[in-house]
């Protein structure tokens, strides 16, 4: 493949000038905080930042040897796999259904996109109103109508289910939009041709639609995993606070709770550095191995 590259030999000054604003934004909002976190990870300091002691890797070893942190890793894996699967499958189903609609497509599209505009903490509060065992409406129905002894306050599985549903619900819209765009990018002629050859809907999906959607699916997979890893502490905070008995104490919530609730910046920074490295490793892995199976249209 030939790579197209533009050269600005005669305009180096202009090129630099045009790049500066973007680089400045990146430096101030991305690089600087990351460096700050890296520095903090090697310090123990008081909340007001008046005294700091350099402690080498102690913050890392303390975190990595704690049984609570091991539990967190396990919970994060369960949470990430469930949330990503649920939100991607639901997004795809909605997209397939809307793609088939003849009328009212725009209205449905808008309705399904809505949840994305809800902030995670608010999403958490909404789900709490439905599923709180004391005053939740759906919790009442589960307990009285359907005979489930619903109690996320003490049952870890229930609590995990609750945060998975809330986190996935928020992400379904995003997945839906991309899947729908992907579906609309598939040439109708291909599908019609296969239909004439006698392929049913399932066959058409498996052999034509799914492979052609694979770039979108891969992109969404990466983004959803990053979302579940980094962006879900607000939901956990408003729904379960990591409880009961640590059942929903996912890594990013620990980063948030130790740093932003309990002002232990050293430990929180060390945890976020670990989390950052884990996600970088995971993303590299995805691009190395999973992407091989993706077919990009030429």
């Amino acid at each position: 493949m030939k790579i197209k590259r533009v050269h600005f030999d005669r305009f180096t000054g202009t090129a630099v000038l045009l790049l500066v604003p973007q680089l400045a934004v990146l430096a101030i909002f991305v690089l600087l905080p990351a460096v700050e976190a890296l520095v903090q990870a090697f310090l123990i300091s008081d909340p007001f930042g008046q005294r700091s002691h350099f402690v080498w890797f102690e913050n890392f070893t303390t975190v990595l040897t704690s049984p609570q942190y091991h539990n967190s890793i396990l919970r994060t894996l369960i949470f990430t796999v469930s949330t990503t699967t649920l939100s991607m499958v639901a997004g795809l189903i909605f997209a397939l259904l809307v793609d088939h609609m003849r009328r009212g497509k725009a209205a449905y599209r808008m309705l399904v996109i809505w949840p994305y505009a809800v902030a995670p903490v608010v999403a958490g509060a909404l789900w709490l109103f439905l599923f709180d065992p004391i005053y939740g409406t759906l919790a009442f129905m589960l307990n009285h109508g359907w005979g489930v002894k619903w109690n996320p306050l003490l049952n870890g599985t229930h609590a995990m289910a609750l945060i998975v549903i809330a986190a996935a619900w928020k992400q379904v819209s995003y997945n839906f939009v991309f899947f729908l765009a992907g579906l609309q990018g598939i040439p109708k002629s291909l599908i019609e041709a296969s239909a004439i050859d006698g392929a049913g809907p399932v066959r058409r999906f498996a052999t034509i639609i799914w492979p052609l959607l694979s770039p979108v699916t891969f992109f969404l997979l990466v983004l959803n995993i990053v979302y579940a890893f980094f962006d879900t502490f607000g939901i956990v905070h408003s729904l379960t606070r990591g409880g009961p008995t640590g059942a929903t104490d996912i890594l990013v919530y620990k980063v948030f709770a130790d740093g932003f609730l309990a002002h232990d910046l050293g430990s929180s920074s060390a945890q976020s550095v670990i989390l950052m490295m884990a996600v970088v490793a995971l993303t590299v892995f995805q691009f190395r191995y999973v992407e091989r199976r993706v077919t990009y249209a030429s």
Partner: peptide, 21 residues
């Protein structure tokens, strides 16, 4: 010191008691 952290630990351990673990 660190009341938010130690209170969270007590609440978590009490949850182990209430759920009979």
């Amino acid at each position: 010191g660190s009341p938010i952290q130690y209170v969270a630990v007590i609440e978590e351990e009490l949850e182990f008691v209430w759920s009979n673990k």
